[in-house]
Computed example of a mutant assay.
Amino acid sequence: MNTVVHKSDSRGLADHGWLRSRHSFSFAGYYNPDRVHFGALRVLNDDIVAGGQGFGTHPHDNMEIVSIPLYGDLEHKDSTGTGEVIKTGDVQIMSAGSGLRHSEFNHSKDDEVQFLQIWVFPKERDIKPRYEQKSFDIESRMNKFQTVVSPDDESALWINQDAYFSLANLDAGTNLNYEVKKPGNGVYFFVLNGDVAIAGESLLSRDAVGVSESNSVELKAKSYAEVLAIEVPMDIQ
């Protein structure tokens, strides 16, 4: 088992007033040669956007982009004609593929919205751009992993990669194993809240550990904890 630990306060920081963003991997003005990606996982941004503010229309191509609101609502528009509001409890995925343009704004004029913006390198390039979102039952992830993004699970959002996103809400004292779904994949565990040991590493809110060369990873919740597991291929072309 190989592990890499990223503590919350070691992440990059961008504060633009209307936007406060913490970067787990090199992004925009933040560059760390040791933290460019974890396998096919390229970006994990923890964004807080002020009321009435957001990201104006901009282009993307050949990237799988996942957005997960943590609180508040996010308004999305793109060049495929999609216009949706992504609410807390929803997960959104966009395959940029051969190219599209999109914008994301705080749906509220007054309250902040916080969301995770996650990019994964695609398996197949230049596919037709696509958009999908889904609301997931939080009770279905209590003390177990709930898969929300997958290439082969019809109950989850489809992704153009051999990657899996799973969420778990753990009561204090819960022990849980994450079983790797595809041999050779690694898993990046991002603690949303709480105090939890993962792969023997003691982690607090917004800490992370990347685990590779292991088929199973043990989690032990020391308090109530919420965890996002991002499983991705470690070998990228």
Results as ranks from 00 to 15, higher is better:
Tyr188Pro: 02
Leu192Gly: 13
Ser67Cys: 08
Glu201Ala: 14
Gln92Tyr: 04
Gly173Met: 12
Asn177His: 14
Phe136Glu: 07
Thr82Phe: 09
Leu167His: 04
Leu74Pro: 01
Ile159Arg: 02
Asn45Val: 08
Lys7Met: 08
Lys134Val: 03
Val91Asn: 06
Ile48Gly: 02
Leu44Phe: 14
Ile93Tyr: 05
Asn193His: 11
Gly52Glu: 03
Pro151Tyr: 11
Asp207Lys: 07
Gly200Asp: 09
Ser8Cys: 10
Pro69Thr: 08
Val43His: 10
Ile93Trp: 04
Thr88Leu: 05
Glu139Leu: 14
Ile236Leu: 00
Leu192Glu: 10
Leu70Ser: 10
Met234Leu: 15
Ile159Ser: 00
Lys144Trp: 04
Ser95Phe: 00
Leu176Gly: 10
His60Cys: 05
Lys87Pro: 00
His76Phe: 04
Lys87Asn: 01
Gly173Ala: 09
Val211Phe: 03
Asn185Ser: 11
Tyr224Ser: 14
Pro122Met: 01
Glu231Trp: 05
Ser205Arg: 13
Ala96Arg: 03
Ala14Cys: 08
Glu64Lys: 00
Phe190Glu: 03
Gly56Cys: 05
Tyr188Asn: 08
Glu84Arg: 15
Asp110Glu: 15
Ser205Thr: 15
Ser212Val: 05
Lys128Leu: 00
Tyr30Asn: 11
Val36Arg: 15
Leu170Trp: 11
Val91Thr: 15
Tyr30Val: 10
Trp119Val: 04
Val4Phe: 11
Glu139Trp: 05
Gln146Asn: 14
Leu167Lys: 03
Glu104Pro: 06
Arg42Leu: 00
Phe105Asn: 11
Asp235Phe: 06
Ser95Thr: 06
Gly17Met: 00
Gly184Ala: 01
Lys7Leu: 14
Asp195Gly: 12
Ser10Pro: 08
Val149Arg: 10
Ser24Met: 10
Thr82Glu: 14
Glu104Lys: 12
Glu104Gly: 13
Gly184Asp: 00
Gly17Leu: 03
Gln117Phe: 12
Val209Pro: 03
Gly173Trp: 15
Leu167Glu: 06
Gln114Val: 03
Ser10Val: 05
Leu167Asn: 06
Ser79Thr: 15
Met234Tyr: 05
Val113Ile: 12
Arg35Val: 02
Tyr164Ser: 00
Met142Asp: 11
Ala163Ser: 15
Asp111Tyr: 06
Pro129Arg: 07
Ser21Trp: 00
Gln146Phe: 11
Ser98Gly: 01
Glu124Cys: 01
Val43Gly: 06
Ser214Val: 12
His37Gln: 15
Ile93Lys: 02
Asn32Trp: 06
Leu176Phe: 06
Leu100Asn: 02
Leu170His: 07
Thr80Ala: 01
